[in-house]
Simulated assay, not measured.
Amino acid sequence: MSEYVFQPSNVVSVAMQGEAARYPVRRIFCVGRNYEAHAREMGAEVDREAPFYFTKSAHSVIESGTRLPYPPGTADLHHEMELAVALGGAVDRSSPETALQSVLGYGCALDMTRRDLQAKAKEKRRPWDLGKDFEGSAVLAPLVRATDWGPVAEQSITLAVNGDMRQSAQLDQMIHGVGAVLMDLSQFYTLGAGDVILTGTPAGVGAVVAGDQLVGQIDGLPPVQLTLAARS
């Protein structure tokens, strides 16, 4: 039996809808500006040639229904509603259709963003880590097995804050579809079970404050819910 200089962290996991077994999260990859309207609202050109990515650590994961203290180091926390794709095995790169066979499940997710820190990083052409990868920045709802949901098509994706609609689009408006993203990302990483891909957010992102209640929905999937508390 191995000994460690301190107790290792517990395995980060999220619920599977209707199952006792949980999904262990290994890594999180996020697709940037994958909806045309969102790219334009961020003042960026629409890039249809290839997706681009940033990452979140497993320690950023919290489950739907959590009460999250307003994160430190920011005065401009934004919501970004996304479809999460959870892999159950290695990606076959022979075609987008075969790549999709590696998907174990789908879920609703929030990519919470310290927008002011991200903006500063962009200005100085530095990485986005401080703006994107922090405790509580990846909120995941229970996953639904791919065999019970899909394919990704015209399902609506929405986000409401305190009952007011902020984001509303359809999944087929993604610039790069799930299969294409898996094909591209697998050129750079050995993807496998435990890897989660957040596939981008529609237009309508905006700031939230302590006391706000967020509810994100995608047709046929359990909603993702988050309440923001005062900074601890």
Rank of each mutant, 00 (worst) to 15 (best):
R48W: 01
R48T: 11
E49S: 15
E49N: 08
P51N: 07
Y53I: 02
Y53K: 03
F54L: 09
T55S: 14
T55N: 13
T55F: 12
K56S: 04
S57F: 04
S57T: 09
H59G: 12
H59L: 11
S60R: 04
S60C: 14
S60F: 03
S60D: 04
V61I: 13
S64D: 03
G65W: 03
T66M: 12
L68S: 03
L68T: 04
L68Y: 02
P69F: 08
Y70R: 04
P71D: 06
P72Y: 03
G73Y: 03
T74G: 08
T74E: 08
L77C: 09
H78E: 08
H79P: 02
E80G: 12
M81Q: 10
E82M: 06
E82Q: 09
E82L: 13
V85R: 00
A86M: 13
A86T: 06
A86D: 07
A86F: 13
G88V: 04
A90H: 06
A90G: 14
D92I: 07
R93G: 05
S94G: 09
S95N: 13
P96V: 11
E97T: 15
T98Q: 15
A99T: 13
Q101T: 14
S102D: 07
V103W: 03
G105N: 05
Y106A: 15
G107S: 10
C108M: 12
C108A: 12
C108P: 02
A109F: 05
A109L: 05
L110A: 08
T113Q: 07
T113P: 10
T113N: 13
T113L: 14
R115Q: 08
D116Y: 06
D116N: 15
Q118A: 11
A119T: 06
K120H: 09
A121G: 10
A121Q: 11
K122G: 02
E123A: 15
K124R: 14
K124M: 06
R125M: 12
R125F: 10
R126W: 07
W128S: 04
L130A: 09
K132V: 04
K132Q: 08
D133V: 02
D133Q: 05
D133W: 00
F134E: 01
F134S: 00
F134H: 00
G136H: 02
G136K: 01
S137Q: 05
S137R: 01
S137Y: 03
S137C: 13
A138T: 10
A138I: 07
V139M: 04
V139K: 00
A141V: 12
L143T: 01
V144F: 09
V144H: 01
R145H: 15
A146R: 09
A146M: 05
A146P: 01
A146V: 04
T147C: 12
T147S: 15
T147Y: 10
D148R: 13
W149C: 12
W149Q: 15
W149I: 13
A153F: 10
E154K: 10
Q155I: 13
I157N: 02
I157D: 02
T158M: 08
T158D: 12
T158H: 05
A160H: 05
A160G: 05
N162H: 04
N162G: 15
G163W: 00
D164H: 07
